[in-house]
Simulated scan of single mutants.
Amino acid sequence: MFEWLTKMVISCWRPAKRCAHGQGVTDCQDPLLWGRDLCSHALGEFSYAVVQANGILEDMSQVESGSFGTYVGVYDGHGGPEASRCINEYLYNFVLNNITEQGGMSCDVLCRAFRETENKFFDIVRRAWQIKPQLAAVGSCCLAGVVCSSKLYIANLGDSRAVLGSFSPDTGSVARQISHEHNASIEAVRNELHAHHEDDPQIVVLKHGVWRLKGLIQVTRSIGDFYLKKAEFNKEPLIARFRLPEPLKRPVMRAEPECSVIKLSPQDDFVIFASDGLWEHLSNKEAVDIVYSNPRAGIARHLIKAALQEAAKKREMRYSDLRKVERGIRRHFHDDITVVVVYLDPKLLNEPSNTSNPISAKCPIDMPQGNRRRS
Rank of each mutant, 00 (worst) to 15 (best):
S11L: 14
C12V: 06
R14S: 15
P15M: 01
A20M: 11
G22C: 09
V25R: 12
C39S: 15
G44S: 01
N54D: 15
L57Q: 12
L57W: 05
Q62C: 15
S67M: 12
V72T: 14
V74Q: 03
G79N: 08
G79S: 09
G80A: 02
A83R: 03
C86S: 15
I87Q: 10
S106V: 08
V109W: 06
E118F: 03
L135R: 03
V138P: 04
V147Q: 03
N156D: 04
D159M: 09
S166F: 00
G172C: 11
S173P: 14
A175G: 10
H180I: 10
H182C: 04
A184P: 08
V189R: 08
H194S: 12
V205W: 00
K214I: 04
G215C: 07
L216C: 08
I217Y: 03
T220L: 07
S222C: 15
E246N: 12
L248G: 00
P251I: 02
K263P: 00
L264F: 05
V271H: 06
A274Q: 09
D276C: 08
L278W: 04
K285C: 06
K285N: 09
R296T: 06
G298H: 05
R301W: 01
A306V: 07
A311W: 06
A311R: 05
A311Y: 08
M317K: 03
M317I: 13
R318S: 15
L322S: 08
K324P: 08
K324V: 10
G328S: 10
D336K: 11
D345I: 00
P346W: 01
S353E: 11
T355I: 08
S356M: 13
N357S: 14
A361W: 09
Q369V: 14
R372Y: 13
S375R: 07
